[in-house]
Computed example of a mutant assay.
Amino acid sequence: MTQGIKTVLHPVSDLATAKVIYAALLGVPPTADGPYYVGFDSEGQHIGLVPNGGPRGTTSPVAYWHVPDIEAKLAEVTAAGATVKEPAHDVGGGRLVATFTDSDGNVLGLLQDR
């Protein structure tokens, strides 16, 4: 079981311009604002802007399903036929993320807060 999609990360080529656009769209200022990541919290969702797709070079938005046990969920989806793209790893503050692809190559994310 998941806790739903609560986080969506968007790759952007111009972080400063994207920050202004997303602030206007969401109607709130960023809650995280750095040169490598800008994040907004609005209506129970976290929207993140990642310059140039981040270290993994993503090219489209990735929705992150929040789960209580990331390793168990990765095992479950891979047993069902998914392929791990990015194994679970800590991105700071005890937050773990991972990505996998479905049978059509769509990238999906998992996120676990400790």
Rank of each mutant, 00 (worst) to 15 (best):
D41F: 13
Q45H: 07
A63M: 06
A88F: 04
Y36D: 15
E76M: 08
T58A: 06
E71I: 07
P55R: 09
K73S: 07
T99C: 04
H89G: 06
P51C: 04
V97E: 13
P35F: 10
P61F: 05
G93V: 01
P87S: 12
A63N: 08
Y37W: 11
G93W: 10
T99A: 11
W65Q: 13
A79L: 10
W65M: 14
V38L: 07
V62T: 15
T59G: 13
Y37L: 10
G92L: 12
F40Q: 02
D41R: 14
G94S: 04
G39I: 00
A82W: 04
V62Q: 02
E71T: 15
A32L: 10
L49D: 07
P68W: 00
G39K: 14
F100P: 02
H66L: 03
G92M: 06
V50L: 14
R95N: 05
W65H: 14
G93P: 03
T31W: 00
Y36M: 12
F100N: 04
F40I: 01
G39Q: 14
G48C: 01
V77Y: 07
V38E: 05
P68I: 00
G92T: 02
V62F: 03
T78H: 02
G81V: 06
P61M: 00
A82I: 10
D41V: 14
G44L: 06
N52H: 15
V91P: 02
V62H: 05
T58S: 09
G105Y: 07
G92F: 04
H66G: 01
Y37I: 09
R56L: 13
G48R: 07
G53D: 06
G54L: 08
P87N: 04
D69W: 09
G92H: 03
V77W: 02
T78S: 09
T83A: 08
A75W: 00
T59D: 11
G44W: 12
A79K: 12
P61R: 07
D33C: 07
